[in-house]
Design a binder for these strands. Structure first.
Lengths: 145, 145
DNA sequence: AGATCATTGATCAATTTGCTCAAAATGCTG
DNA sequence: CAGCATTTTGAGCAAATTGATCAATGATCT
């Protein structure tokens, strides 16, 4: 089975949709809701996991649960053609939760989650010191509104 | 039970930590892993759900699963003291996935997820037309790196 | 038509769940 | 400290769920 290329069909997508709403739904209930045999749901789910389409199950926690965490979004400008190098360096920073290329006034958008303000400050310094980072702008995420 | 003020203790946090890693872990297995009675895990979990500390269970899907979706981060500047009004308007836009106040050069950070470029374009227009929005800067999220 | 693969419905043992109960442990208040 | 309320524990039980297998059926493709 080619992991990289598996494309979920309609039934797969319906299973995923249900699991997104209730990740603990039993296979029996899923099969009822989808009008399909339990074994089918079981096989599909196994395959979705094997192929990496589904990464796993988790719990959704109230946002202020990790109140001690510092979150921010950092816009990064990269000079010349060093983007690949910069990305490699950024990937090594644990506090960078997600990293995307972008097309606006900036080149990269980094999502930062630190456990304290001092950790956060250290991350900012590290990023700015990376060779190839010519400019950056960080916005601390305050309350969720 | 005061929903708003329930503060999870150490056991609660350990349960949540386990469920974050495996949202489908059985209560039996959790009780074993945590060295606590099954009924206790069951009660704790019920309480965490009742109090809203836990919002629900879900499945983690490979990032490129919703390949058709357009994601962006939008920085918004608000003129004067109309922030509350602007927030109310923004909350009414379905494509705004999350919305935070911030402290940088901008006042608000909006996370946008649209299902098509035309939807995305419509969202941008709607936001910019909101009374009180004086400036904005949008960065399309391209590939995740 | 023939070959291959997915789906179905069925069965089975093992596990898990939801629930109750009494005893023990814990925490709090006066 | 004594008394009270809450939580935890271990136990037990019926019902539900799971994981596995099997043969029959259906679908797809050449």
């Amino acid at each position: 089975m080619d992991v990289a290329k598996y494309i979920p069909d309609d039934l797969d997508r319906r299973i995923i949709a249900h699991l997104r709403a209730d990740g603990r739904a039993s296979l029996s209930r899923l099969s009822q809701a989808l009008g399909v045999a339990r074994g089918t749901v079981q096989n599909r789910l196994d395959r979705l996991m094997e192929t990496g389409t589904l990464l796993g199950f988790t719990v959704r926690v109230r946002e202020d649960y990790d109140a001690q965490s510092v979150r921010a979004v950092m816009m990064i400008e990269v000079v010349g053609k060093s983007t690949t190098q910069v990305i490699r360096r950024l990937r090594g920073i644990a506090e960078i939760y997600s990293l995307h290329t972008t097309n606006g006034n900036w080149d990269l958008v980094a999502n930062i989650r630190a456990s304290s303000l001092s950790d956060f400050d250290r991350v900012l310094r590290e990023v700015r010191m990376i060779d190839g980072v010519s400019n950056s702008e960080t916005s601390l995420l305050l309350s969720s509104v």
